[in-house]
Simulated assay, not measured.
Amino acid sequence: MPKPKVIIHNSIGLDGSFRDVDVDMEIHYGTAASFGEDVHLVGANTAKTGIEMFGGVPLEEYDDLKKPARDRTVPIWAIVDSKGILKGSLHVFRRFEMCRDVVVLVSASTPSDYLDYLKERDYDYILTGEKHVDLKEALKLLADRYEAETVLVDSGSKLNGALLEQDLVDEISLIVLPTLTGNRTDGLFANITKPGKIGLELVKCEELEKDYVWLVYRIKRATNE
């Protein structure tokens, strides 16, 4: 299969900050659902932060060691974790009813004990790249193995920047909150070091409740300019 459509989706303040903003999860995930994602792509650090925000890691139970039985319309969660940051806590996502199951993206540098942890609990994983995950190859394998046509990226600046620098993103979806964070600003796209501008084409501008605005941009390439 060809590379899936990749959409970055995030909630930010008016100054572009994705930290220290009070995200409305119902709006955030409600708008995300409109894309009909097959795979929800998250970085390990973002996933870890989410776990800490919503109560920490519960004790692992017997049912956590096997794949959940959920409908194929529920998206797979693919987590980029070549360092094994989420060892001992992946069952948090496996319990989430909006996650069909977890697929971990790892590299040749991933610790062997983390791979053993994944195998013992029947987590699928995709091994690409040497020190870091080869994102281009990982996306292709997600398409081939899981028939993924649409991948929604719900992560921080590091993963977003890597995907944009490698020209792997097709659309950017932003829920803009009416707030400014000032000196605490940590910009969602601060990690882009690729020279030159990335052109965008507006495809949606919708006013939501709470004075939120939903913006969707398409990445401009030679084929769609």
Rank of each mutant, 00 (worst) to 15 (best):
M1I: 10
K5H: 11
H9D: 00
L14K: 12
D15T: 12
D20R: 13
V21D: 08
M25L: 14
H28R: 07
Y29T: 04
G30H: 12
T31V: 10
A32W: 03
A33W: 00
F35M: 10
N45V: 14
T49F: 14
T49H: 15
G50V: 13
I51F: 03
I51T: 00
E52M: 14
E52S: 15
E52P: 12
M53K: 09
V57I: 01
P58L: 02
L65Q: 12
K66S: 13
A69F: 14
T73D: 14
V74Q: 07
V74Y: 06
P75L: 04
W77R: 15
A78Y: 02
V80D: 07
G84F: 08
I85R: 15
I85G: 06
G88E: 05
S89M: 06
V92S: 01
R94D: 00
F96N: 13
C99H: 00
R100L: 01
L105P: 01
S107N: 10
A108T: 12
S109Q: 02
T110G: 05
L115R: 15
K119M: 10
Y125C: 11
L127T: 13
T128C: 09
K131F: 09
K131R: 14
K131P: 05
K136S: 12
L139V: 03
K140N: 09
L142D: 01
Y146V: 01
E149S: 13
L152N: 03
V153Y: 00
D154G: 00
D154W: 01
D154F: 06
S155P: 00
K158Y: 03
L159I: 04
L159Q: 02
G161S: 08
E165P: 06
D167Q: 09
V169R: 13
D170N: 10
D170Q: 06
E171I: 04
S173E: 05
S173F: 01
V176M: 07
L177F: 11
L177E: 10
L177H: 13
T179V: 10
L180S: 03
L180V: 09
G182K: 06
G182L: 04
N183L: 14
L188Q: 08
L188G: 05
A190W: 12
I192A: 11
T193Q: 06
T193H: 12
P195T: 09
I198G: 10
L200P: 05
E201Q: 14
L208A: 04
Y212L: 08
R218H: 10
A222V: 08
A222F: 11
N224Q: 07
E225G: 13
